[in-house]
């Protein structure tokens, strides 16, 4: 092999390497771009439409409820400090209330031992003053346990890590059902279409040739 051929071979190798580097860089760029695209518009939690505090967050969630309840912990504590003294225990204390669309509380109730009615009234006053964010959902029923420790000076309220809400599950969302369908009718449909009792299905396919025969007639003919 001549000198010229050798240098050409080397140049070719170097060139190929550079070319490969370019394509590797391009491939990396494409991979990065596809990963960014896969992350979607909601890549950052603050970019979620329902990020708490975001103006597009129009429905309450438990984290927003907890933030308000934990912020009121000092006032709950003040009630215990005032009304729980001398070794008595008010039992399991739970406050329940609803949050309306304006963020105001209503239907507040305090579950407390009968001997601690002043404590119950004090806690109810705190709950009545709570203010949550405005929301577009149905009035939300909330239940929140007040966990406390009693000592000589009174009681210390421990922020409870969760709040209980009665959420309505979405039922049969893939079917378009009339709004006036009764609860009993809906339960029957769910039972028929989804119930766990597995059994062989029978089929009655509708056909254009069966004009004039209503589906209910077809179905009534099934064994």
């Amino acid at each position: 092999m001549s000198q010229g051929q050798r240098s050409v071979g080397l140049g070719s190798a170097v060139s190929t390497r550079h070319c490969c580097a370019g394509f590797v860089a391009f491939a990396l760029l494409c991979t990065w771009a596809s990963l960014v695209a896969a992350a979607g518009p909601a890549g950052s939690p603050s970019d979620h439409l329902d990020a708490p505090g975001s103006p597009t967050d129009r429905y309450l969630d438990t984290s927003e409820l907890l933030a308000v309840l934990h912020a009121a912990n000092a006032r709950f504590y003040q009630c215990f400090r005032t009304h729980v003294r001398g070794g008595g225990e008010p039992g399991d204390v739970v406050v329940t209330f609803t949050v309306d669309t304006a963020g105001k509380t209503g239907e507040a109730e305090v579950e407390v031992s009968p001997g601690f009615r002043p404590l119950g009234a004090c806690l109810q006053g705190v709950v009545d003053d709570l203010e949550f964010g405005e929301h577009d959902g149905d009035p939300m029923p909330v239940s929140y346990p007040l966990v406390y420790q009693v000592d000589r000076k009174g009681a210390r309220v421990v922020p409870y890590p969760t709040v209980f809400v009665r959420s309505r599950t979405v039922r049969l969302p893939l079917l378009t059902l009339p709004p006036d369908l009764g609860l009993g009718e809906l339960r029957m449909l769910e039972q028929v279409l989804l119930a766990g009792g597995e059994s062989p299905a029978t089929e009655s396919a509708p056909s254009a040739g069966e004009a004039g025969e209503s589906p209910s007639q077809q179905l009534s003919e099934q064994p």
Partner: peptide
Amino acid sequence: VAETQLVRKPADAARFDLAPVEARLLDV
């Protein structure tokens, strides 16, 4: 306008009185 037909049902659906429900879903 929603026309709904249950074209396939499990055999154990016979224990339910589905006909009135199906009639109400037929043409809404």
